[in-house]
Design a protein around this nucleic acid. Structure first.
Lengths: 302, 302
DNA sequence: TCCAACATGTAGCGATCCTAAACTGAAAAC
DNA sequence: GTTTTCAGTTTAGGATCGCTACATGTTGGA
């Protein structure tokens, strides 16, 4: 494989017309340039320079080589510039994970915003539960994830992962419109004894939080419906079949047949973005973080 | 300026997916590849590789750089191949000089033939008198020249120039059709005493030869018309204004008003191709030499 | 004929680049 | 949970490379 330094030497000679001028241009002595080209000649088994009077002339092979050397040098220079530019730009593929509610309520706007601001950024989205999110980020399968914890089940991030808080998401109890508690200012676990709950499957944080909170009041919730899909939960609620605890994030307009009532103690989960600390320097990561924050703000003011 | 070896290392990692595989592919140890990329990272002040589990993953910058590295490597490889091919092919620019008669009578056919055989060869033609030809070749301003001497004025080629004889060109005396000598088998200087000569300007070999030959017979030719252009000489001859000594090379069909009569002693000039010995290895030079020989042969048999 | 300009050759020193081997860290196997 | 294995990195050291300074060889002009 030809050496770039030698090609540069040859190209300089071709451009400046003499070994000495080329050496000056490159900041070397003529001897160095001469030696470089001599080595290039040995490597290619080709005569590149011919002495002509006091100076030198390039052979056909040298012209040929110098021409492509020019292209190569231009390309390399371009790469350097691109690298420099890229140091501040968000490009490439960014794999994002988010828990279901955020995937529904926050990420669509974020992806749109990123697409507007950074057209070169290719965002991939995966819906994952918070523990899986963290693991995937730590393993490098995701570049960034939106996750959450509840105040009574704080999120532990492993060492090489950083996190930033986006904000808090409050959950309300959703009741059929005709329910006796439907017009209360707020409800407590005690008020809801005997209700049949619509809840996410076991193993999800939503499920665990509900169980923990009721056990704190020395009660056991009746988790009659284990439903992962938001729309399905809503459909069940609309039919008055049970009650549910649903976060405000990602909750659209409710049907008339369903009422939201604040819960006491307020079920608040903190929403975080997490990423490998290592990758924090990636412009793509910081840009996504910024977009997430913007979209979160916009959601709250809306 | 980025180093080609490092770019190749990065590209290999990108292609093979791991440092070890890249090292195997390149014939190095993983350590070498790792160091190369570490240096590349320092040079570009960019993170290129991130550890991911047991292996590594490329950052955006690395992907960017690897992509252009691929282009660069392809270009360099292409240059190497081109160089290899070119080692046997006639390509590039070839500057050819020829004395006027050869430029008229030999070179056009040669240029056509070269263009057929070697379309990549770019032939430039300059009309130059033999001494200038030799000088230009020796100086490297011409790559090859067609020159001549007369038997009584042999051509001396300087050391770093080679020559090859193409053949001999005989000159005849051209007389107006009505001239008393027009139907003779041959004429000698003595026969032509008092004639007004149409001749090339002083300083040309043609001129000098005429003077020398006549002085050898203790005569002085009357060089009444100093004309460089062949067509002009012919026009003068056609009007019966003088006589001329014109070589057979490059002489087309004569008008009826002009007759060619052999001269005694026969004015014979040896025609040579000359080139820098150094450049003799150039395929372009050998190809042109071959074409010149072919065209000369063809001319004689025609 | 000497001198100036230019390229090339030589010696040597410092930088570079590779290998080998120890080290670190993560996944897999027991 | 502990050990093994795998992959990449770090470190040390020796060979090579690539530069500079200086000498040499040519060429072209005063």
């Amino acid at each position: 494989m030809l050496d770039l330094g030698r090609l540069r030497a040859l190209h300089a000679v071709a451009q400046h017309g003499s070994v000495g001028a080329a050496a000056t241009a490159l900041g070397y002595t003529p001897s160095a340039v001469s030696q470089q080209i001599a080595k290039l000649e040995r490597e290619t088994r080709t005569t590149l320079l011919e002495r002509r009077g006091r100076g030198v002339a390039l052979t056909d092979a040298a012209h040929l080589l110098s021409a492509t050397a020019g292209q190569v040098l231009a390309l390399v220079e371009h790469a350097e510039v691109a690298l420099e530019e890229q140091r501040g730009a968000a490009v490439g593929e960014l794999r994002v994970g988010a828990f279901a509610t955020a995937a529904r309520g926050l990420l669509p706007a974020t992806v749109v915003r990123l697409a507007e601001r950074h057209p070169q950024l290719d965002v991939r989205l995966v819906e994952l539960d918070p523990p899986d999110c963290l693991e995937a980020v730590a393993r490098g399968e995701l570049d960034l994830a939106v996750t959450h914890d509840w105040v009574n089940a704080p999120l532990a991030v492993p060492e090489p992962v950083s996190r930033a808080r986006l904000g808090e998401d409050v959950a309300d109890v959703l009741l059929p419109a005709g329910h006796p508690l439907a017009d209360r200012e707020s409800v407590a676990p005690e008020d809801l004894a005997g209700e049949r709950w619509i809840c996410q499957p076991e193993g999800t944080i939503c499920h665990d939080w509900l169980v923990n909170t009721f056990r704190g009041a020395d009660m056991e919730p009746d988790l009659a419906f284990r439903i992962a899909e938001y729309e399905t939960q809503l459909a069940l609620l609309a039919k008055g079949i049970g009650v549910a605890l649903l976060p405000r994030l990602g909750r659209g307009a409710l049907p008339d047949s369903v009422r939201a009532v604040p819960f006491r103690p307020t079920p608040t989960r903190r929403v975080f973005a997490v990423w490998r600390t290592q990758a924090g320097r990636r412009p793509a990561v910081t840009a996504t973080l910024a977009a997430l924050r913007d979209c979160w703000e916009q959601r709250e003011t809306a």
